[in-house]
Amino acid sequence: MSERLYRVVFDLQERIACSTGIGVERLWAEKSGRLEMRVLNVPFYVRGIAFGDVVRVRPDHERREFVFEELLAESGNSTMRIILRGAQPEGEVGAMLRAADCGWEVGPQGIFLWAIDVPAHVNYASVRADLLKMADAGTINLEEGAISGLHREGFG
């Protein structure tokens, strides 16, 4: 029997909403407790949230959605985002991420925006260094969306 999935709405910061034209991001999640959900997507725009994190939600009856309230527990994973630039770098970037055991989601409508999941067991500093080299070469633009406490402490 498959677990029921829910969409959790994250209202985006005004700065992000203005620059993207998107006011909210909806992420798939599964219930982990009463009004608690485990995030099952890598966010494209939400800051401070990573795949597997547990969040508190509130039902918004007007919107008929669950809305993010607060982060309850980190999964240990981190989120990075890149925008691909130049002559088709996706093969090089994808090979590097696969070798590092990272997952990613590609933005909608053929946009060259990737949301990258850096699992807790992966050496974050190494992945970051490889992506920074690509950024310095002009192949990608890089943003760190959520760095877990585990990765900030230098583990993995």
Rank of each mutant, 00 (worst) to 15 (best):
G86K: 07
G52E: 14
F66P: 01
E105C: 06
G103C: 05
I147E: 12
R81I: 06
I140A: 11
V127Q: 00
V39N: 05
G23D: 14
D101E: 14
P108W: 12
V57F: 03
I111V: 10
L12S: 01
E14H: 10
R47V: 14
A135P: 01
E105P: 07
E25P: 01
I82F: 11
I16N: 03
E153V: 00
T139P: 00
V118K: 03
E25D: 01
S75K: 15
Q13V: 13
V39A: 08
H151D: 00
A135E: 15
T20D: 08
E105Y: 12
A137M: 06
G149S: 09
E14L: 07
A100M: 12
A99E: 11
D53N: 10
P89F: 00
T139Y: 06
L113V: 05
E144Q: 11
I147V: 15
V24F: 09
W114E: 05
I49H: 08
R85F: 06
E144M: 14
D130F: 00
N77M: 04
V42L: 06
G156M: 09
Q88S: 10
V55M: 03
D11K: 06
P89Q: 00
F112M: 10
W28N: 15
L150A: 11
R26E: 15
I111F: 05
D53Q: 12
A146Q: 05
R58E: 15
F155A: 04
V67D: 05
R64V: 08
E153T: 00
F155Y: 12
A95E: 12
E143F: 14
R58C: 06
R85V: 03
A146M: 05
G145N: 11
M96W: 00
S19Y: 07
D53V: 09
M80T: 03
R58Q: 13
N77R: 03
V122S: 01
V118C: 06
G154M: 07
G48Y: 04
C102N: 02
K133N: 01
R26P: 02
G145F: 14
G52T: 12
V24S: 13
L131Q: 04
A125L: 09
N41E: 15
R63D: 08
A87V: 13
R152P: 00
G103H: 07
E90K: 06
A100W: 01
P59E: 14
N141Y: 13
F68K: 02
R38W: 04
D60V: 01
M134S: 06
S148R: 03
R128C: 05
L97H: 01
G86Q: 04
I147C: 13
R85E: 09
L150R: 15
E69N: 07
G23Y: 08
R81C: 10
G138C: 09
F44Q: 14
L142H: 06
I22W: 13
I83Q: 13
G76C: 12
V106R: 15
E70P: 00
V57Q: 03
P89K: 01
E74L: 07
C18K: 15
E143M: 14
P119R: 05
E74D: 10
N123V: 09
A115H: 03
T20A: 02
E153G: 12
S32W: 03
